[in-house]
Design a protein around this nucleic acid. Structure first.
Lengths: 193, 193
DNA sequence: GTGTTTACCGAACATTCGGTCAGTTGACAA
DNA sequence: TTGTCAACTGACCGAATGTTCGGTAAACAC
């Protein structure tokens, strides 16, 4: 009946710690021995909780991708000017990135070395395509600068968004909303006074 | 007397191909066997040209870092308003990134797993500190929006710059200068019309 | 107290890793 | 023709890799 239990690990705590180590040393740079050390158990204990290294990666990537999918689903049902929807997508992306920081960080570093990684890259491309389409809409109705290529804007804009994973530390340096405010002020409004 | 030679590899061609594979699969995800396959030779032939895997990484990272160091050296001697110097640093950073794309790409993915990587990270931090200082100058003299934290602006701005390594392909999609123009238009001028 | 389950350990597994080394090949000079 | 030498091959090494498995101690159910 869900008592306090002997204390020890479960699939969730193993995943959380594994993802932290994956982000510190890179997935390929992390051995099961590294994970075991971080968990305070031996290598073999890990296999009691999870099926293996690649499954840990797959589960972590799903956490990130499920968040982005939910964002798309929400936003497909939305209406209003494209520029306003774009702004909302950026803001929500920042929120997801901050909420699920370690998982999104891992996702953004995936290079397609295994079937698991390739599947994740494909799902990620769907998100990119969605955003790209939105920027094109905003460009077509004349609400963003006409001298900039929409595809390029998409990439630079989300380059800035995604770079948050490189330095953001929860607790320090503002909430997701404050971050999004600053990012939108810079990219939509411009740095110059 | 420097004839045409038997044809085959030399340290330079090995490095170039190795870095390409490192960027495709990640440094830790690349085995010497992978490199040998890409070079069309056996593993042991690699050791005739270069001392080993980590030396390949070290040489590649130096190419990127030497470019950034040269930029700093140039710019320390420069004068003029901070905002103009910042703009020039961004433009030159884009140029170096494009000119030395595979090397800079590799540098930006380093996580400090070995002494070689840690040394590279330290050198990179010097560059970041230089840029950060420049943004603070521009903020102090009132030439960028006062509502944005200079440290945050530095990170987001160079987040956009560095993201170029994620998608840029030489030949396609404009020169370094055109890229820099678009990036500066977006971040300094703002997207909105 | 007995039996079951949970969470783990230690030893071993086959495979892959980065790296070494003695030998081979073929182009070239003399 | 002979000898040199750059550029490799192939066999191999010890260590590390991800994973499996038999066993076990402690907590729980009855």
């Amino acid at each position: 009946m869900e008592r306090v239990r002997k204390r020890g690990h479960d699939p969730e705590s193993v995943l959380a710690i594994a993802v932290r180590v994956f982000n510190e040393r890179g997935y390929d740079g992390t051995s099961m021995e590294d994970l075991a050390r971080a968990l305070g158990v031996t290598k073999s204990a890990i296999y009691y909780h999870v099926p293996g290294k690649e499954q840990l990666l797959a589960r972590a990537l799903d956490r990130a991708l499920d968040g982005l999918d939910a964002l798309i689903a929400d936003e497909r049902a939305a209406s209003g000017p494209a520029i306003a929807r774009l702004e909302r997508v950026v803001r929500q992306s920042v929120r997801i990135l901050v909420d699920r920081l370690p998982y999104v960080t891992l996702l953004l570093r995936v290079r397609g070395n295994s079937a698991t990684e390739q599947r994740a890259l494909e799902r990620r491309r769907e998100f990119d395509a969605f955003v790209s389409h939105l920027v094109k809409e905003a460009a077509a109705d004349g609400s963003i600068r006409p001298d900039l290529d929409p595809a390029l804007v998409t990439r630079l804009l989300f380059g800035a968004v995604n770079s948050i994973t490189e330095w953001y530390q929860p607790g320090r340096g503002g909430s997701a909303d404050e971050l999004a405010d600053a990012l939108l002020a810079m990219t939509f409004g411009g740095l110059r006074v």
